[in-house]
Amino acid sequence: MNSQPSTPDEVFVQLLSQNEPLIRSYLRNLLPSYQDVDQVMPDVALVAWRKFSQLEDHDAFARWACVIARYEVMSYRRSKARDRLVLDPDVVARLADEAEEEMPLRRRQMNALEHCLAKLPPQRRDLVLACYSPEKSMRDIAAEINRSENSLYQLLRRIRVDLQECMEKNLSQESLS
């Protein structure tokens, strides 16, 4: 069960699995919603699979996949341009550059986030995860905790800002030590 993957397909699937969260967060940086991420991700995976034989350094998989992701976002954007709720191409390009620069930080950020989530009061932690779980809509959760949807969004903003602050503090301490 623990044997090393050998065929190129197996290697690819493993690399994709390992890097999928990174690719998804990069896509989310550039796209208006997570539904859009769900739409684009399979295309990124498919293109990456087709071109996988061209990738020499497997350690560079994430960065390579993000180049593909950037292309796919642009073409998805063009197909969506009519609904006007998308960012302009030059803005997406700037976001893409800046997000790519930050990529090496993501794993440490994830660790910091887990640390900060654990420091939240358990109810808050569970609430924030419930809001992002695939199972429930914000409306359902608002109803469950007897709040209006609007006030749930407000609460979530506060928690997100708190988490972000905590992560930054955590990461800056980490770089000092």
Binding site: S25, L87, D90, R94, L95, Q109, S133
Partner: peptide, 25 residues
């Protein structure tokens, strides 16, 4: 987003945070 690096930074941070929360959830 064109003129403000702080706005871009905020957007990248918050969208990253959101997708990481989704991964954990």
């Amino acid at each position: 987003l064109r003129r403000s690096p702080a706005a871009r930074q905020f957007l990248i941070q918050q969208t990253t945070l959101e997708s990481q929360l989704r991964e954990i959830a």
